[in-house]
């Protein structure tokens, strides 16, 4: 698709920002997203091309602004929802439970 992900040659995005001594993960949530990604893709719940396509379908402004692993999380969520493996509504219901300490 002619999406925002197709960035080659685009101007005006600013300098390449680098972080000295960057850690592999910036917080535990990044670790968890990465681990869930590997477990679900290696487990055969989706393939890499499906995953890339799911990420590309993020809303363009969000694609540019959301942290990288948040994009991964939203892509995994979308694929599992579309495949009927775990519905988005179930994730959100579980979030509510976790937030109130009921789970």
């Amino acid at each position: 698709m002619n999406g925002i992900h197709d960035l080659g040659g685009m101007d005006g995005l600013g300098p390449v920002l680098r972080e000295a001594n960057e850690p592999v993960f910036h917080g535990d949530w990044e670790r968890r997203v990465f681990a869930v990604f590997i477990a679900t893709i290696v487990g055969g719940l989706f393939n890499d091309d499906e995953f890339r396509q799911a990420r590309e379908r993020l809303e363009p402004a969000r694609y540019l602004k959301a942290p990288y692993y948040e994009q991964w999380l939203l892509a995994i969520q979308r694929l599992l929802d579309e495949k009927g493996i775990i519905k988005k509504a179930d994730i959100e219901a579980r979030m509510k439970k976790l937030a109130t300490g009921a789970a």
């Binding site: 869930v36 599992l80 994730i91 979030m95």
Partner: peptide, 30 residues
Amino acid sequence: MAQDHHDDGPSDVALRVKALESLLVEKGLV
């Protein structure tokens, strides 16, 4: 830009991955 983000993440993302992980484990998928 995405690379500005270096804290523990928006609470929604942290909560969302926790929810997803718990459902995957519960269903025996992970």
